[in-house]
């Protein structure tokens, strides 16, 4: 068994684990750390249900080895809220009914936060284009776009 030692900061906490080299970051988060908010929806790096932030950049955790994230700081959906206080993007998703089954939602919110960090006042077109790597089968994206618009605005405050 080819294993490797991995250390990283996840949602502000340092973790070190010995894992098989083939462990994907998403599996490290879900199976080794119990952070099941990050989901797997495809195997071709397209759906974005697994999106997390590595050192502030939004990435598909199903296409990154845990070993590649060694030494990095990872933020998952579980790391956005401060205690009971929702992150503005989370609050905007609820307010605008931007989720139905909820499965794509964590990845959508992580993408929304990343966009807002890049562009504080994204247009509808910019939001739709930025969502190229996130599939939602429930909402037709209409309310997701509205939520990200609102969430980005709220993040500016």
């Amino acid at each position: 068994m080819s294993s490797t030692s991995v250390s990283m900061t996840v949602n502000g906490k340092s973790v070190t684990k010995e894992v098989p080299a083939r462990t994907l970051l998403v599996s490290f988060l879900r199976d080794h750390l119990g952070l099941t908010g990050t989901h797997v929806g495809c195997d071709t790096s397209q759906c974005g249900a697994c999106n997390v932030h590595i050192d502030g950049k939004c990435v598909k955790s199903c296409t990154v080895l845990a070993a590649q994230a060694d030494g990095a700081s990872v933020t998952t959906i579980e790391g956005l809220a401060k205690g009971d206080q929702l992150h503005p993007m989370q609050a905007a998703f609820k307010e605008h009914h931007a989720l139905q089954c909820g499965f794509c939602t964590p990845g959508m919110i992580m993408t929304g936060v990343a966009l807002a960090n890049e562009k504080s006042n994204p247009s509808e077109t910019e939001i739709r284009e930025y969502l190229e790597g996130n599939f939602c089968r429930c909402t037709g994206y209409h309310n997701i776009v509205k939520a990200i618009e609102t969430g980005a605005k709220a993040m500016r405050r």
Binding site: G37, E78, K94, H97, L99, G102
Partner: peptide, 17 residues
């Protein structure tokens, strides 16, 4: 506003996997 959203937007849903 939906009651179920609270768990989904915080990553606390419980799907089969």
């Amino acid at each position: 506003r939906r009651v179920e959203d609270n768990r989904f937007i915080t990553g606390r849903g419980t799907y089969t996997d």
